[in-house]
Design a protein around this nucleic acid. Structure first.
Length: 283
DNA sequence: CGGGGTTCCTGGCCGC
DNA sequence: TGCGGCCAGGAACCCC
């Protein structure tokens, strides 16, 4: 049985999309024992096979990274983590058989007969198996900023984090250092909502607080909508996101600002497509 | 060690 | 209709 490719959800995974995957995956695979695995030879995926023999103990998430806890089921062996980054087009699916799929990059068979598969058309995703918490091989995860909903993250500390860099504020956000989990879509959305120009290089305390509040709003709203799905694909369960219907800024260049009616602008900012309102988001 | 530039990929889309 | 060319996009990687 070959699931048609178009039936897989194609997201642009940022925090809400990755958290949606985590929540769906957790009840399916926690407790399962991995008995065999296979991976694409690229270094981006080849470590997947190191998860063989382990039991899935839990699934956490940091920013856009899924952290799948691996143990021996008795806490005897040192615990490991299977780290999954979905990149642009990555997806994790639990299936009863391995499909003949040119974009299958890794799979793990489970003792109960099911399979976890990692599918990634553009190969921007990444898989790693590391000792728990040992993230030096993944520099962005290693230096990852706080979770956006961490109560310890407040306007003051967020401002301090932004002030450590003179890069454009949007580029800082995409670095994952001031806060984890914000990508191109939600960076544009949060900057629009907080009326901050993406090319600003200094963001003061008040605007930092506004930006943090906006990031929390756009992320929690997206999460409530099961994330943003940029194509009308649906899983067999019909559970793809619908947050794309609620985007105010991303992808709306040339269309009227929903706040002031000006035409939204789009240009490259540090090699990233960026949309903003030239009236609301003045420098 | 921060940060700028480059690279990885392929489907989709545009123009002819 | 076919096809070349271009583009998106996160983060590793290289180098200053």
């Amino acid at each position: 049985m070959l699931p048609p490719a178009a039936r897989y959800v194609d997201t642009m995974p940022e925090l809400p999309e990755v958290e949606t995957v985590r929540r769906q995956l957790e009840p399916l695979i926690v407790g399962a024992r991995i008995v065999e695995s296979e991976a694409h030879p690229s270094a981006k995926f080849s470590q997947a096979t190191l998860a063989t023999g382990y039991r899935v103990e839990g699934i956490d998430r940091r920013g856009k990274y899924l952290l799948i806890g691996l143990g021996d089921g008795m806490a005897m062996a040192p615990s490991m983590e299977l780290i999954v980054h979905l990149g642009m087009t990555g997806g994790v699916h639990v299936v009863d058989s391995i499909p003949d799929d040119p974009y299958l990059r890794a799979w793990w068979s489970l003792k109960d007969g099911r399979f976890i598969m990692f599918r990634d058309v553009r190969r921007f995703g990444r898989l790693a198996v590391v000792p728990t918490g040992e993230y030096s091989s993944l520099p962005t995860l290693h230096a990852l900023g706080p979770e956006p909903f961490d109560p310890a993250l407040d306007g003051r500390s967020f401002h301090a984090a932004l002030a450590r860099s003179r890069r454009h504020v949007k580029t800082s956000l995409l670095s994952q250092r001031p806060v984890a989990g914000v990508g191109n879509i939600y960076a544009d959305e949060a900057l629009w909502r907080s009326r901050i120009n993406p090319a600003a290089r200094r963001v003061g305390p008040d605007r930092s607080e506004r930006l943090l509040a906006a990031i929390r709003e756009v992320l929690s709203e997206a999460l409530a909508n099961n994330g943003t799905t940029l194509r009308d694909y649906r899983t067999p369960a019909g559970d793809s996101g619908n947050n794309q219907e609620f985007l105010d800024c991303y992808g709306r260049g040339g269309q009227p600002c929903r706040s002031c009616g000006s035409t939204l602008s789009t240009r490259q900012l540090d090699q990233r497509t960026t949309t903003w309102c030239p009236t609301c988001q003045v420098r």
